[in-house]
């Protein structure tokens, strides 16, 4: 089941990063800019997920204190 979750995350990340990084018509090779973008995209998406989850947890906590 953990493997299924991993697979699903990969498909989701791949779609998000493909849409963000591969904007031109496909050519005979991934150019280095696109390749760098794809590598960074995965890492920044995970960074962003963590930042968002943290902020959201703070919001929830603040609201439950009021």
């Amino acid at each position: 089941q953990q493997k299924a979750h991993f697979q699903q995350q990969i498909h989701r990340l791949n779609e998000i990063c493909w849409d963000k990084c591969v904007t031109d018509k496909p050519s005979s090779k991934l150019d280095s800019r696109t390749e760098g973008c794809l590598n960074n995209c995965v890492d920044r998406f995970i960074d962003a997920s963590l930042a968002i989850t943290q902020r959201f947890a703070q919001l929830i906590q603040k609201q439950s204190m009021n």
Binding site: L13, N14, C17, C21, V22, K25, L30, I46
Partner: peptide, 25 residues
Amino acid sequence: KCLNLCVDRFVDAYNITTKSYGTRI
């Protein structure tokens, strides 16, 4: 021709994503 290249690049992207995600987690 575009479809064939697109398959090749999509698989490249998938391999990069899988590797980056695997390394990270």
